[in-house]
Simulated scan of single mutants.
Amino acid sequence: MNERTSPQNALDTMRRLSAAVLAVSRHLATDEVLQTIVATARELIGAEYAALGIPDGAGSFAQFLVDGVSDEQWAAIGPLPRQHGMLAVMLQDPAPQRLADVREDPRFRWWPKAHPEMDAFLGQQIRDGDEILGALFLANKDGGFTKDDEELLGVLAGHAAIALRHARLYERERELAITRERNRLARELHDAVAQKLFALRLTSQAAAEVLDTDPARARAELEQVATLAKEAAEELRSVVVELRPAELEEDGLAVTLRKHVEVLDRVNQTAGGPRVTFEGEDVKALSPAAEEVLLRVAQEALHNALRHADAATISVRLREHCPAGAKSCGGALLEVVDDGAGFDPATVRRAGRSLGLVSMRDRAKSVRGRLDVASAPGAGTTIRLEVDRGRAA
């Protein structure tokens, strides 16, 4: 800040800058980060207009976001601008550009007819090392832009670069998580359903071969065919349900879980089955992999409860995880609770019937989560998964 800035003004500026940085870093999706950057820059500096351009590497912009321009004005302006005039300067020269009147600068070219009139101009690159992620443009401020404004925008641009990098890493991780999940489902489809269908084929052939010579054996083989067909259908239905893309990115984990539970509840109420309920809210800043694991563990636990528990009610709960003795909360806690028949986990392990527990434990382990299964005959079952934000990352 310059020497004329009073302590109170400096404090106010620091508060505004802190609020701006927090606003930019709060989001994980790239589009949300970009829109927040341009709106926050305009508010922080007190400009009438703000814009953020993301270059496409081919002489134009992959994205160009504005703040302070109405939707009608933006539609009238026309297509995204190409990199010319001051827009090109901003992507070629790393130095900030602060002009009293952009129209009087020899590097200025033109703007479309519907473009609002602008005079005072302040521009700043958003960089990550040597890579230019984009450029911020501000225009029109009473009294023009000051050196303080330039310094503030520089600080904001630095934090914007970090937020953009994190958002892109987050989305890349989400894509990798989706790919891993598709590969896992492909393996399950082959291992479970394909084997059942192979057994179904062999059994039906055996029934055909003894149909005339041993009707009793043929009848037994056909009964086995019916059993195998039912099991194959159940396996296939389970995999198909998982193949449905969970709208985690659009809706968030809590909304996705709530929708899933509501569908199950409607189906089970129609069939006279247990009541299925959900309570909870989204937990912020979880990795895509952690969200995927929480969703899949909830689905597996619900599947087990509906199939084996003979319960009257099944509840799914999701909330922020607050470890005992911790100064702050972080991560997520998922609980799936039923009031059904329950079981002895030790007996189930010895009998080799894991009820999906192995799958759930493997999923929890993949994000360094902690899975706990509490159950006893006649006492219902509680599946509890804790995922700490730092550990899951």
Rank of each mutant, 00 (worst) to 15 (best):
E171A: 12
E171H: 09
E171W: 05
R172F: 00
R172A: 12
R172N: 04
E173R: 12
E173Q: 13
E173S: 09
E173C: 00
E173N: 13
R174G: 15
R174A: 15
R174S: 13
R174D: 13
R174M: 08
E175P: 01
E175Q: 13
E175K: 10
E175G: 09
E175Y: 00
L176I: 14
L176T: 15
L176R: 15
L176H: 12
L176G: 05
A177Q: 09
I178V: 12
I178S: 07
I178P: 00
T179Y: 01
R180F: 02
E181I: 00
R182T: 08
R182F: 03
N183S: 11
N183H: 08
N183D: 10
R184H: 07
R184M: 09
R184D: 09
L185F: 08
L185R: 13
L185I: 14
L185W: 04
A186M: 10
A186W: 01
A186K: 08
A186H: 05
A186G: 08
A186Q: 11
A186N: 11
R187V: 14
R187G: 07
R187E: 10
E188Q: 14
E188T: 01
E188S: 03
E188D: 13
L189T: 12
L189E: 15
L189W: 08
L189F: 04
L189M: 12
L189R: 08
H190D: 14
H190L: 09
H190G: 03
H190F: 09
H190R: 07
H190Y: 07
H190Q: 11
D191M: 03
D191E: 15
A192H: 06
A192W: 11
V193Y: 08
V193A: 11
A194F: 10
A194D: 15
A194T: 12
Q195M: 06
Q195R: 10
Q195W: 06
Q195I: 00
Q195K: 05
Q195T: 10
Q195G: 14
K196V: 00
K196T: 02
L197T: 09
F198K: 12
F198H: 15
F198Q: 15
F198G: 07
F198V: 08
F198N: 10
A199V: 00
A199Q: 13
A199G: 04
L200K: 02
L200E: 04
R201H: 11
R201K: 09
R201V: 04
R201W: 01
R201M: 03
R201L: 07
R201S: 12
R201F: 01
R201A: 11
R201N: 09
L202R: 13
L202S: 08
L202E: 14
L202M: 06
T203I: 05
T203L: 05
T203V: 12
S204T: 14
S204N: 08
S204W: 01
Q205D: 14
Q205F: 01
A206H: 07
A206R: 13
A206E: 11
A207G: 04
A207I: 01
A208C: 02
A208G: 03
A208K: 04
A208H: 05
E209D: 14
V210Y: 06
V210P: 05
V210N: 04
L211V: 11
L211K: 03
L211S: 10
L211H: 08
L211E: 15
D212N: 04
D212E: 15
D212M: 03
D212A: 10
D212T: 09
T213C: 02
T213L: 03
T213F: 00
D214I: 03
D214W: 01
D214F: 00
D214H: 06
